[in-house]
């Protein structure tokens, strides 16, 4: 089965477009002239409070995700919203949030300037969302690096006409790509260019590429929230009926006595991180224990669902 084209349009520089993308549809974001960064947000089409979360996504897939990864929603949902199906360049960013009017005023002196936050806000206003509903963006084609010492930098990008990324919707989403407004920095090689966006009905081959994911109890829905009601006022006022119900609180500690042979005591002395724990053998051994557990049993990095093991089970 081949893909069926559903729609296609050009997004002009300085603009963005909110697109309803249903589960099983593919969004292609394509370079027309090349060298253009595309900022991207996504919302659950049926519950805008669930949105694509760069923090979660970069925790699971690193700072520069490419094809073969997922776009995740924020806790406590933590659903794979979209599958990153194809990427002809292989360089994207989830480190930088999105450029804003403040940046161009504070650093460049502009009173008005195209910026990703305002473009995103204007595009999603078509669906009743406010500027406060813009979230950190997944920045396609943006070339960023973390330098020694922890600083981050943006460099020029190398995308050419026809280069594209493709995202497969795993739920109904409102996908909002926008043409990044940064023309006075390297993000899009110092110019703003149009972008082509196309929506396809996914082929069987597309769908077959998606790795199986486990469904975990911790992937919560509003029906499980203690407060499922979306707040409708701006003022924050205390709920006098509030009674805290923190998970597993109070935390209770117990002692565990572990008899070590002379040989095992010597092992502990070699492994103990005395710079952290001093002469506290119990803390040093606890560190050894849980560090060992990570090495032996943790199959997925940084809290990602362990797709390989859990999904198979």
């Amino acid at each position: 089965m081949t893909r069926t084209l559903i729609s296609e349009e050009i997004i002009a520089p300085g603009t963005g477009k909110a697109i309803e993308l249903l589960k099983g549809q593919v969004l292609r974001i394509e370079q027309v002239e090349g060298g253009q960064c595309v900022d991207f947000n996504a919302f659950n089409l049926h519950d805008y409070k669930e949105f694509m979360h760069c923090g979660r996504t970069r925790t699971v897939h690193g700072f520069n995700p490419s094809a073969g990864t997922f776009l995740w929603s924020a806790p406590p949902r933590e659903n794979a919203m979209m599958y990153f199906l194809a990427d002809t360049v292989g360089r994207n960013d989830v480190l930088f949030p999105r450029c804003s009017a403040f940046l161009y005023e504070s650093a460049y002196g502009f009173h008005d300037h195209t910026n990703c936050h305002d473009i995103q806000a204007e595009a999603q206003r078509e669906y009743g969302l406010t500027p406060d509903d813009v979230h950190d963006s997944f920045n396609f084609f943006m070339f960023t690096e973390v330098e020694v010492g922890g600083t981050v930098k943006i460099d020029r990008q190398s995308s050419k006409p026809g280069d594209h990324v493709e995202l497969l919707a795993l739920m109904d989403v409102l996908a909002v790509p926008n043409v990044c407004g940064a023309d006075v920095m390297r993000t899009s090689n110092f110019s703003l260019k149009p972008i082509r966006v196309s929506v396809f009905q996914a082929s069987a081959e597309d769908l077959a590429q998606v790795p199986a994911l486990p469904r975990l109890a911790s992937q919560r829905t509003p029906a499980q929230f203690r407060n499922p009601t979306i707040k409708a006022t701006r003022e924050l006022t205390r709920d006098p009926a509030y009674r805290p119900e923190f998970t597993n609180a109070p935390i209770r500690e117990e002692t565990l006595e572990v008899a070590l042979s002379g040989e095992e005591a010597a092992m502990l002395d070699r492994l103990a991180r005395r710079e952290l724990y001093g002469d506290d053998d119990g803390a040093a051994l606890r560190d050894v224990l849980f560090s060992w557990w990570e090495t032996r049993f943790l199959t997925a990095a940084n809290g990602a669902p362990s797709m390989e093991t859990d999904a198979a089970g």
């Binding site: 597993n248 935390i251 209770r252 500690e253 117990e254 002692t255 565990l256 006595e257 572990v258 008899a259 070590l260 042979s261 002379g262 040989e263 095992e264 005591a265 010597a266 502990l268 002395d269 053998d281 119990g282 803390a283 051994l285 606890r286 224990l289 849980f290 557990w293 049993f297």
Partner: peptide, 22 residues
């Protein structure tokens, strides 16, 4: 030679749960 000794770990209920499942 290092003498045998007994070490006391302080572990909370969540850590103990993980140990028990392990």
């Amino acid at each position: 030679e290092i003498a045998p000794r007994t070490v006391t770990l302080r572990l909370n209920q969540q850590q103990l749960e993980l140990l028990d499942r392990t």
